[in-house]
Simulated assay, not measured.
Amino acid sequence: MKLYALSDLHLRYEQNRQALESLEPHPEDWLVVAGDVGETEEELDFAWRTLTARFRQVIWVPGNHELWTLSREPGALRGEARYQRLVALCRAHGVITPEDPYPRWPGEGPHRVLVPLFLLYDYSFRPDDVSEEGALNWALEANILCTDEAVLHPDPYPSRAAWCAARVDQALVRLASLPPDCKTILINHFPLRYEHVRLPRIPRFSLWCGTKKTEDWHTRFRAEVVITGHLHMPATLWRDGVRFEEVSLGYPRQWQWRGDISWYLREILPGPSR
Rank of each mutant, 00 (worst) to 15 (best):
G38I: 02
G38Q: 02
T40I: 06
T40W: 00
E42S: 04
E43M: 13
L44A: 13
L44E: 11
L44S: 06
W48L: 15
T50M: 11
T50N: 06
L51E: 01
F55V: 08
Q57E: 01
I59M: 04
I59T: 02
V61T: 11
P62H: 07
E66R: 00
T69Q: 14
S71A: 14
G75Y: 05
G75I: 12
A76R: 01
E80N: 04
E80L: 12
A81P: 02
Y83V: 01
L89M: 05
R91Q: 15
I96M: 08
T97F: 13
P98V: 12
E99W: 01
D100V: 06
D100S: 07
P101L: 12
Y102H: 10
R104G: 13
W105I: 11
W105L: 14
P110W: 11
R112F: 06
V113A: 02
V113Y: 02
P116R: 12
L117E: 05
F118H: 03
F118C: 04
L119I: 13
F125T: 06
R126M: 03
D128K: 15
V130R: 08
S131N: 10
E132H: 13
E132C: 03
W138P: 01
I144Q: 04
L145K: 14
D148P: 00
A150S: 12
L152Y: 10
H153G: 03
P154Q: 11
P154C: 13
P154W: 11
Y157I: 14
A161P: 02
D169L: 03
A171V: 00
R174Q: 09
A176D: 02
S177R: 10
S177F: 07
